[in-house]
């Protein structure tokens, strides 16, 4: 099975194979360690995979993968498990700061080829 990538033009990133698509549950996150960086991976209901920073910018704990996945309108979202701020999984933008000053998440490009999920980290020779 080949699934489309959620990556924008993937220039200037190095790709790292992380896990199989099968090992990710639908609508639930999983943490991954990519070259020492903690990343939260989310496989949505329609089998897109998104990657954002695992660090919750509001609490400072590495917990984003443990939030509830859902939608706001047509936007796929995750809610922080700590203080429930809601983020757009595609852009990392904070959609509901719960009364705080909004802070967004770093996102990482993802592609899924033949059932293998890879995450792109900035920099490196890979795709240049």
């Amino acid at each position: 099975m080949t699934i489309e990538t959620t990556a924008p033009a993937d220039l200037g990133v190095t790709w790292h194979e992380v896990c199989s698509l099968k090992s990710l549950s639908r609508e639930r996150g999983a943490a991954a360690l990519v070259e020492g960086t903690q990343v939260a991976l989310f496989r949505t209901f329609d089998d897109h995979v998104h990657a954002v920073q695992q660090l919750d910018p509001f609490s400072g704990a590495n917990v984003m993968s443990r939030g509830i996945v859902g939608t706001r309108g047509s936007v796929p979202t995750v809610a922080s498990p700590m203080y429930k701020q809601v983020f757009d999984l595609r852009t990392g933008a904070c959609l509901d700061p719960v009364g705080k000053e909004p802070r967004s998440l770093t996102t990482y490009p993802v592609h899924v080829v033949d059932g293998v999920v890879s995450v792109g980290l900035p920099g490196g020779q890979g795709a240049r």
Binding site: V69, G70, T71, R72
Partner: peptide
């Protein structure tokens, strides 16, 4: 839609 942190729990 696909729910949220209110209706899912």
């Amino acid at each position: 839609g696909r729910g949220c942190d209110i209706c899912k729990p």
